[in-house]
Design a protein around this nucleic acid. Structure first.
Length: 479
RNA sequence: GCCGGCGUAGCUCAGUGGUUAGAGCAAAAUCUUCAUAAGGUUGAGGUCGGAAGUUCGAUUCUUCCCGCCGGCACCA
């Protein structure tokens, strides 16, 4: 049996999840469910990046112990996956001691390869933010935006560096040859454009003081903690046993796919493969990069007050409606826009009037005849359409075009509506029974196709075909 | 500034060197009642961002211009 290991990005948990996280969870879940349905052995991993300094700062502000703070927030992310019917097989926390050990192992492998060295790092440090800034991140007075009027200090600190510069050519080759496949092509081009400039070595540790004694300790040096990205990326490995369970690790690594947002492309396309190359480990096969979601065509932000709470969406419309909207309306690898108006229009047109209504009318028609769902089609046209849809789903999902796949599935719905109109199976006739049976079989195929996208709805359709009419799948929203 | 992408019906987008440029949604008319006042049918709606060029012929290729978006490292 083929294995398929897929991950979401590892969100840093200094706040609550927003709909961007929901989008990514849903996309990854659909792919995982699709492969699972095909019979492959699938593992879907997510987790929480808990070792970032930002977590410490956010915890301080909330006046909560750091561990407690990240535990609470991580729980919310996990809860979101449940709310969305997203099935994580592993949820690896960055504060898990096994993860710490695992990251130390990765560090030691890189060190053994001679790719880690110590060097003084000098930069502009804002005491207020407790962060280093580069000049272009500062305002015209060379002060940070959070703390105007406060001069930045030049701080120098000994850190460990990773010889990223040594991997330039290898990375270019890997990306060019699609050995590290990056989807969509525009993101691949961006990486290649970036790799045209000479790579600089990167700092991969912080002083304990600056890290506030939080995060993974550097092996054999108690005075330093790992730079958060070094360990965060390794959650992809630590969650499947790297450093503590060789058998499990060997079974799943390398990752077949990392699903990530466009903002963290460089870490995944350059740093991560370089760390793995240094450590002599296999590389992930594919990076799928999605865009960001705007709300009413504006960037989501706390200050604008337009942040959409995914939990609220789910409790208002249901998990499958939320899944449907994000998969159908947000272009899978570009930015997309959310608005309640778009959501409700989509919902009423496709879910209430389309799918839900079709199921209701067919299930009612079924009660007119004594029949159960047949095992095959009698109508050739319908059969051809369904078979064609099966291959179209396969094709479009291999290119992560969720929207196209759903569009193809909806063609079956439109066909069935027309078929009913034309055949008038509510009237008694010689072919009444066969028409209804065709529809029943069409719906059972529909349920199969919908399973990765709308798992709960898929289940309900099968149930209604079996047990007769129940409550509406998607009650119409009055606007 | 440099690099890349985009600009097609009211909205979201598809598409092709060649006869009348497509889909869905929204809006209109009409048919129907099995169904969630849902569904079917039909019609309307576009100088395919602007200008020039290549060509027998360009929305599709080239150049320029205008507008929008993304990327340009140690920040998660």
């Amino acid at each position: 049996m083929a294995k398929f290991y897929i991950t979401t990005a590892i969100p840093y948990v200094n706040g609550k999840p927003h709909i961007g996280h929901a989008l990514e969870f849903i996309q990854a879940d659909v792919i995982a469910r699709f492969y699972r349905q095909k019979g492959e052995e699938v593992l879907l991993l997510s987790g929480s990046d808990e070792n970032a300094l930002k977590n410490v700062q956010a915890a301080e502000q909330a006046d909560i112990p750091v561990q407690e703070f990240v535990d609470e927030n991580a729980k919310l992310f996990y809860k979101l996956s449940k709310a969305l019917d997203v099935q994580f097989d592993v949820f690896q926390k960055g504060s898990n001691p096994k993860h710490h050990e695992s990251s130390q192992k990765l560090w030691e492998l890189c060190d053994k390869a001679g790719d880690i060295y110590k060097k003084a790092y000098e930069g502009l440090y804002c005491v207020g933010c407790e962060t280093f800034y580069t000049l272009d991140e500062l305002d015209k007075n060379q002060e940070c935006y959070e703390h105007p009027g406060k001069k930045l200090e030049i701080v120098s600190e000994e850190n460990y560096f990773f010889k990223l510069s040594g991997y330039q050519e290898k990375l270019i080759t890997l990306v060019k040859k699609d050995e590290l496949r990056i989807i969509p092509a525009t993101r691949k081009n961006e990486v290649l454009a970036f790799l045209k400039q000479p790579l600089q070595d990167i700092s991969i540790s912080r002083s304990n003081e600056r890290a506030k004694n939080w995060g993974v300790s550097v092996p054999h040096d108690d005075s330093q903690r790992m730079y958060v990205w070094f360990d965060a990326l390794n959650i992809y490995q630590s969650g499947i046993g790297f450093g503590n369970d060789d058998e499990t690790y060997k079974k799943w690594w390398p990752a077949d796919m990392h699903v990530i947002g466009k903002g963290i492309l460089r870490f995944h396309a350059i740093y991560w493969p370089a760390f793995l190359l240094a450590a002599g480990l296999a590389l992930p096969k594919t990076l799928f990069v999605h865009g960001y979601i705007t709300v009413d065509d504006q960037k989501m932000s706390k200050s604008l007050g337009n942040v959409i709470d995914p939990f609220e969406l789910v409790s208002k419309y249901g998990a499958d409606a939320v899944r449907y909207f994000f998969l159908r309306e947000i272009p899978s690898s570009e930015d997309g826009d959310f608005s309640y108006e778009k959501f409700e229009t989509r919902y009423n047109a496709d879910l209430a009037g389309g799918l839900g209504n079709l199921v209701a009318r067919v299930v009612t028609l079924k009660e007119r005849i004594s029949s159960s769902t047949p095992k095959q089609f009698l109508n050739q046209e319908l059969q051809a359409l369904v078979e064609n849809t099966r291959s179209e789903i396969q094709r479009s999902l291999s290119e992560f075009q969720f929207s196209v796949a759903l569009d193809k599935i909806w063609e079956i719905i439109h066909f069935c509506d027309k078929y009913i109109e034309k055949q008038r199976p509510w009237e008694e006739s010689d072919n009444q029974k066969s028409v209804i049976e065709n529809l029943l079989f069409a719906l059972s195929n529909l349920a199969e196709f919908l399973q990765p996208f709308l798992p709960e709805t898929s289940k309900k359709i099968i149930q209604q075909l079996d047990q007769g009419k129940e409550e509406s799948l998607f009650p119409r929203i009055e606007t």
